[in-house]
Nucleic acid binder design. Structure first.
Lengths: 140, 140
DNA sequence: TGTGAGCCTTCCACTTACTGGAAGGTCAAG
DNA sequence: CTTGACCTTCCAGTAAGTGGAAGGCTCACA
């Protein structure tokens, strides 16, 4: 099957599928005319990738999961460890975003939001929490 | 003051501050020896940027906020609108991450996590939700 | 006077995971 | 025979920095 059909089956854009081939996540056969020719197995791999990416696994994690998937002797504990770690990362991101949201909401509530020039949001941005002198820490 | 000291005051790495200059967010003076020379106003801008970035505003949003900050006649409603929209974006991201987390937790709970090779996590990744075309599927 | 540490400078490359677009080949329908 | 929908490759760009090389400046210390 051509890339367009494979893309429809895998719910991925053709460009993304070609990119996955570039980075050696998949190696489709080629038809006589030079077109990529995807087997059912290829489509299966693509769907695996689509699903794993949508769950927040990075490309390299997907690569690892895929090789575990194709390893007949893997231990399910190995996969579980990857997923568990990912849950932790997702939780940290959620907490960070919730912190942002709380601060933004507070700022918006303080702001009268009219035509006057004085704005508590800008004042907070300008004068927000200070590091004590000397502490160099990169924000993330 | 030199970039290192400005970095400490602003809680930003020197590299990032140079990058902000590259993209014209800040224009420090130069000392006779070619070193960048940051004024108190420059440091103030840098701290504004650090704070706004840490709240999730993009560089371009920071640029807009900064120009509002320096516009004596801006309306506070304009700033409020930017912040309110950002809250919406943050909320959408949180919801997405919570969806990921729920799915990952379900998968981890289903996985026995031992030395056996069968793993519900991989099975789900391989056979997860399908787009319309092709195989039968259960809706999420 | 030299020297070494620790600053500072510029420039280039790399990161993630694609996405857009140009130039051109292939195929089926009308 | 042409048109339009596919397909191919290659190049470039995105966001927001980060890492490192190669070299200049300053200051304390011997």
């Amino acid at each position: 099957m051509n890339i367009g059909e494979a893309a429809a089956h895998a719910n991925l854009p053709p460009k993304t599928i070609r990119y996955y081939e570039d980075i050696a996540l998949i190696r489709p056969a080629r038809a006589a005319n030079g077109y990529r020719d995807y087997s059912q197995t290829d489509v299966h791999r693509l769907r695996f990738l689509q699903r794993a990416r949508s769950l927040g696994f990075t490309i390299e994690e997907c690569r690892a999961l895929l090789s575990l998937y194709e390893d007949e002797h893997r231990a399910s504990a190995d996969v579980r460890a990857v997923a568990t770690q990912k849950i932790g990362e997702v939780e940290r991101k959620i907490a960070e975003l919730q912190g942002m949201k709380a601060t933004l909401k507070r700022l918006v509530q303080c702001c009268h939001g009219d035509e006057r020039p004085d704005c508590p949001i800008l004042e907070d941005l300008a004068g927000g929490p200070l590091p004590e002198t000397g502490a160099t820490r990169a924000p993330r």
